Amino acid sequence: MMFVSTTEAASLLSISTQRVRILLKEGRIQGARKINNRVWVIPLHQGMPRIHRRRKGPKPRWSSHKRCGKNTVHFNRNHIDRNKNKQNSDLTILSVKEGSSNLATGHEAEIHGPCRIVYQPEKPHSCGATVWIETLAAVTMVDYQEGVLKIDNKWALTDE
């Protein structure tokens, strides 16, 4: 089970961080806990926080469908084999994807937050990978030729 912060939950629900805090104060986000009386951690159920509805008032306007806001880090086995056989020692072996779109490739990846490593040989990823890393956090990708690229779950910024 993955946990997110109030900012990440707000991004997933397409509401403000303040609204998430109000829902937390009312006890409407299922499974949310406060750590050290300071930081909220919110569990995800099928990629989204679960929110209890009220009996009165308008219906909520947040999106209830699962967004693909998570980044997945893939390992390119073909490039690893080619680099090992010295056919081309500079091929990038890591790629960061959001859904099916490739955001960046590189030689090193730094994940700035919680992540999980997934191994599913019976149900491979859409690209055919059986091992990958999933995260909602930002990822810094280092390519030895291109430089540093920081991937967030909403946009990509080039660091110089």
Rank of each mutant, 00 (worst) to 15 (best):
R67K: 13
L94F: 15
R54W: 02
V20T: 02
K59D: 15
D81I: 15
H74M: 14
T105V: 10
H65W: 10
P58Y: 13
P43E: 02
N78C: 08
A104F: 04
I42Y: 01
S16D: 03
S100G: 07
T72S: 15
T105L: 09
P49Q: 00
S101T: 12
H74A: 13
N88A: 10
I42G: 01
P60V: 07
G69W: 13
Q120G: 01
R77Y: 10
T92A: 14
Y119I: 07
I15T: 05
S95T: 06
G106M: 04
I93C: 11
V73P: 04
L103Q: 12
T7P: 00
C115G: 02
K56Q: 15
V41Y: 01
K59W: 09
I29P: 00
D81C: 06
W40A: 08
S101Q: 15
R38S: 15
I42P: 01
V96E: 04
I22M: 10
S101Y: 07
G27N: 06
G69Y: 15
W62K: 00
K70M: 13
R19H: 12
W40F: 09
H79C: 11
K86G: 11
A109L: 06
K86H: 10
N102R: 14
H112N: 14
H79E: 08
I117Q: 05
A10V: 03
R54Y: 07
T92M: 14
N88W: 12
P58G: 15
N83T: 00
N71L: 15
K97P: 03
Q46H: 10
S95C: 09
T7K: 11
S89P: 12
L23M: 06
R53H: 09
A10I: 01
S101K: 11
P60Q: 07
T17H: 03
C115H: 07
R116V: 10
V41I: 12
K97Y: 09
L91T: 08
I80P: 00
E122R: 14
K66R: 13
S64Y: 12
G57C: 08
K84A: 06
K59L: 12
A32M: 01
I111S: 04
I15Y: 02
S89V: 14
E8Y: 00
N102S: 12
L23P: 01
E26A: 09
R33Y: 05
L23D: 00
R77K: 09
T105A: 08
N71V: 11
E122G: 04
R67I: 05
I29L: 00
Y119D: 06
Q30E: 10
E98D: 06
E122K: 14
R67A: 10
T72N: 14
R77M: 14
S11N: 07
I80N: 08
N78I: 07
G69R: 10
G27I: 07
I15P: 02
G99F: 02
S101D: 13
L44P: 03
